[in-house]
Write a protein that binds this DNA or RNA. Structure first.
Length: 576
RNA sequence: CGGGGCUUAGCUCAGCUUGGUAGAGUGCUCGGUUUGGGACCGAGAGGCCACAGGUUCGAAUCCUGUAGCCCCGACCA
């Protein structure tokens, strides 16, 4: 294709509000352009990349015998009431009414629709296992879109749903998807780590995320040399228990204006692990009533609010403000579990149960208690793991120090179990005249996030460098003078390359070399050919493999051979 | 949803403090000279100064409100 016929609006400068380098280069290269917050137009280059990613995803999905379908973006709100997810998604749901005032939503995901679809069309065990997938536009009214294509409100997702008769069979379906995902990311040239994840609002009983590690990511991953990796919400750590001591009766001690664990630790000259930290929250029950919560944890640890939310089985958790704390008869800075209002639900981290003679707040201003002990002095309604895994914590598996890294979630796989099967009354006939409720899995890939991550992964200052498998074109031919444009021997060779199936972008514009080079760097096409007097005078053209940075010269009549060699060499790198 | 910032030419920005004819660079058009890393000379087109209201003889500029966009946090299948 000739650049004079294409809309590729490259720019010297990106809009000032853009922060991330990859986003800036995607805008400057004329790949995408923003319409409104979190909603982007894909121009020719961006769309070509996106379509290539989609093709790779489709090939790998089809290889697992998943069925491609296409469900509508418009969905009836009733389905979401039936699954009880209307509340869980809340304002994320884009909603609208049709002319008959029927409530509709723009689908943020498709568990409901696919469950109905399955319930109405599959009747017998003989049709299982079955996996359905689609590549489709999702809508989520995010509170805060950010980072270019990383968090957007309208995006393309590959979502797959598996239906199996048994847990063992689900495990097979799940592993097939995991393998397909690894193939997809490999072919897209994107290094990912697979981590244990919290299953969040989708629900279910097991899930993993595929993360592209990068500092601009929104997710925090906890990793160990031994291979253990999980997201921050899910990560389990090994906690050294305090040394066993003889328990002593607690006594009050004055601690004037000493309100934080750090100050207490200095004041008493004791490690933070000798204190009991109390954090107060308000959560909502199903009737949307406020439930007060006190969470207790050892002073050296932090509370993981996701784990806390899961364990108390309530939603909408938030910190109590000072007035609320006072209304429950407590004092900010001096809170503790002893003698508190009976309506407060007490949740204790496992770390405080075998800890001895901890110093805790007394719920009286300027006083703490020395030597408080679990069971003897106070009890919890719920005990469990509610601590946060932080950088430097110890790995539960091997005991080495964990490190924390930021990353972008580009794929997520879940074992849903029978959650939706039950809600949508999905049943199939079994082989023994019985009825079986299938077990489900769901699997998502963010297509746009692959594109953004691939850009991030290969960018250099003012240039992108696409892997050959997803590059918008394979070959970029740059004419530096217009005399060569009409050279028939060159034309013939270019035609030969095109006939071999390679996609060629020809810069036939009347621009200065500097501008052409700068644009070419932004376009990041893997094989670049320069044609100018300087080379054609020797009967040659110049070929640059942008991955290896190697430059070669080849005859005008036969440079197609060299180009094809580089192409196959590059392609090999991304073949599974 | 809390906190902060921004909004003037297609793009990047100045002008606002101290009210008085709308500016630069870049991009675009035309002519010429150039042509291996965002060239040069000349001529042009291009504006509801986000929107609404107010103060004033007069508002891009001062005041009020609204909206849009970005960032931090909360939230995030």
């Amino acid at each position: 294709m000739n650049m004079t016929r294409l809309l590729i609006p490259t720019r010297k400068e990106a809009p000032s509000e853009i922060e991330s380098l990859s986003h800036s280069l995607l805008v400057r290269g004329g790949y995408i352009t923003q319409l409104i917050s979190g909603v982007y137009t894909y121009l020719l280059l961006g769309l070509r990349i996106k379509n290539k990613i989609i093709n790779i995803v489709r090939e790998e999905m089809d290889y697992t015998h998943a069925n491609e379908i296409l469900m509508p973006a418009l969905q009836p709100l009733e389905y979401w009431e039936q699954s009880d997810r209307r509340r869980a998604f809340g304002e994320i749901l884009f909603s609208l009414q049709d002319r008959k005032n029927r409530e509709l939503i723009l689908g943020p995901t498709h568990e409901e629709v696919v469950s109905k679809l399955f319930a109405e069309n599959v009747d017998t065990y003989k049709q299982l296992p079955l996996t359905l997938y689609q590549i489709q536009t999702k809508f989520r009214d995010e509170a805060r879109p950010r980072g270019g294509l990383i968090r957007v409100r309208e995006f393309t997702m590959k979502d797959a749903y598996s239906f199996d008769l048994t847990d063992k069979s689900l495990e097979d379906s799940y592993q097939k998807m995991v393998q397909a995902y690894e193939n997809i990311f490999y072919r897209c040239g994107l290094p990912v780590v697979k981590i244990d994840a919290d299953s969040g609002a989708i629900g279910g009983k097991g899930s993993q995320e595929f993360i592209y590690l990068h500092s601009t990511g929104e997710d925090t991953v906890i990793m160990c040399e031994c291979g253990y990796a999980a997201n921050e919400e899910k990560a389990q750590i090994k906690i050294e228990t305090n040394k066993k001591e003889k328990t002593i009766d607690y006594t009050k001690i004055e601690t004037k204006n000493i309100t934080t664990i750090n100050k207490l630790s200095d004041f008493f000259d004791l490690p933070k692990s000798k204190f009991l930290k109390a954090v107060l929250y308000i959560a909502k029950n199903e009737a949307m009533e406020d439930i007060p919560i006190i969470a207790l944890i050892r002073g050296d640890l932090e509370i993981n609010e996701v784990k806390l939310t899961n364990i108390i089985k309530l939603s909408g958790i938030r910190n109590m403000n000072d007035d609320e704390i006072k209304s429950y008869g407590m004092v900010p800075g001096f809170t503790g579990p002893i003698g508190i209002d009976k309506n407060i639900q007490v949740v204790a981290d496992a770390s405080v149960v075998p800890s001895y003679n901890l110093i805790s707040g007394s719920n009286e201003i300027n006083y703490h208690y020395l030597n408080t002990n679990y069971d003897k002095d106070w009890k919890a309604d719920i005990i469990g793991d509610i601590h946060l895994a932080v950088d430097g914590a110890l790995c539960q598996l091997c005991g080495k120090q964990l490190s924390s890294k930021k990353g972008i979630e580009i794929g997520h796989v879940f074992k849903l179990g029978q959650l939706y099967s039950e809600k949508f009354n999905i049943k199939v006939s079994g082989s023994n005249q019985d009825t079986i409720t299938p077990t489900m899995g769901c699997y998502g890939i963010g297509i746009d996030r692959i594109l953004a991550s691939a850009a991030e992964n290969t960018l250099k200052k003012d240039s992108l460098n696409w892997p050959i498998t997803i590059a918008p074109f394979h070959v970029h031919i740059i004419f530096l003078g217009d005399e060569e444009l009409s050279n028939s021997a060159i034309k013939l060779t270019i035609d030969t390359i095109e006939d071999s199936g390679l996609e060629i972008l020809i810069d036939d514009r009347n621009e200065t070399p500097g501008k052409k080079f700068a644009d070419a760097d932004l376009l990041g096409i893997p094989i670049r050919i320069l044609i100018s007097k300087r080379n054609t005078a020797n009967g040659e053209v110049e070929i640059i493999n942008r991955t290896t940075q190697k430059t070669t010269f080849a005859p005008i009549e036969s440079f197609n051979d060299d180009v094809l060699d580089i192409y196959s060499e590059l392609l090999n790198t991304y073949t599974v």
